[in-house]
Computed example of a mutant assay.
Amino acid sequence: MDALACLIAEREIERAILDYAAWNDSGAWEKVAALYSADGRMSRPTAPDDFIVGREAILAAFLARPPRTTRHICANIRITLDGSDHARADSQILLFTGPDQAPLVGTYADRLVHTADGWRFAERRGSLDFPKP
């Protein structure tokens, strides 16, 4: 990949990470699930080893959540391209869930694939950086 193609890919991946947070906060579950490849898998930061596999299962998991107000702040997004169709990304997340609860700090370790629909998460593994004792 030439330098311009690398910059474009990195920006598209960064946008996917930011869209994920924004759509998660707005409850746009179909849009969140569409950011995954058909066989993509995810784990939530509170359960990093419990993967939900497949876009449809991911959508069902989000739809099953009780309504809540959240704000995800993404920072320190670092992307490594592994060729033109594969990438890895790491980012830190600050999650606010309400005025009476302490925010959570976590990390996402992502593997992405480039598809006909753009960059999609093949795996999104969340973890808490400061888990509750």
Rank of each mutant, 00 (worst) to 15 (best):
R65K: 10
I8H: 06
A3S: 09
T107V: 10
N76Y: 02
R68N: 04
R88I: 00
R55T: 05
F62I: 03
A116P: 03
E10A: 05
R55G: 06
E30W: 00
F62L: 14
D85G: 09
D90G: 04
A28W: 00
W29C: 04
D19Q: 08
A109R: 11
H72V: 13
A21T: 13
L7V: 03
I77E: 10
S26N: 08
R124S: 08
D50F: 00
A34K: 02
I79V: 15
R78Q: 12
E10L: 01
L128C: 13
D49M: 04
I17E: 11
G106M: 08
C6E: 15
I58H: 03
A57H: 04
D117V: 00
F62A: 02
T70D: 11
P133D: 15
D100Y: 03
T80E: 14
G118P: 08
A28G: 01
A47N: 11
P103W: 07
I17N: 06
P99H: 10
A5H: 05
N24V: 09
P131R: 02
G118N: 07
Y20F: 15
F130K: 01
A116W: 03
R11E: 15
F62W: 12
R55A: 09
A61C: 07
L128A: 14
L18D: 09
A61R: 10
M1T: 10
I17C: 14
D100W: 02
L81C: 07
I17L: 15
G83Y: 05
A22F: 02
A60K: 06
I93H: 01
P66I: 08
T115V: 08
R11C: 03
Q101T: 14
A16I: 04
D2P: 01
R65L: 14
E123Q: 15
S26E: 15
F130Y: 12
S26V: 00
I73L: 14
G118V: 05
A60D: 13
A122T: 02
T80Y: 00
H72A: 07
C74F: 03
W119I: 02
P48L: 06
L18V: 14
W23T: 12
L4N: 07
D49H: 08
L59V: 03
A75T: 14
T46F: 11
Y108I: 07
A16Q: 12
Q92N: 13
A61N: 13
C74D: 11
I58T: 03
L7K: 07
W119P: 04
L7N: 11
R41G: 12
N76L: 04
W23H: 13
F51E: 12
R15F: 06
R124T: 08
L94Y: 09
V105I: 04
P99A: 15
D90Q: 11
L95I: 12
T80F: 00
A60C: 03
T97S: 15
E123M: 13
P103N: 09
S26A: 15
I79E: 10
A122L: 13
T70W: 02
D117R: 06
F51Y: 14
P133K: 08
D90E: 14
D100A: 14
D39V: 01
A64H: 03
I93D: 09
A3K: 04
F121N: 09
P45A: 08
P66E: 15
P67M: 04
R44T: 13
C6I: 09
S43E: 13
R55P: 05
R44Q: 15
T46N: 10
M1G: 15
Q101M: 11
L35R: 03
G27T: 05
G126K: 01
L95N: 09
E12G: 08
A34V: 06
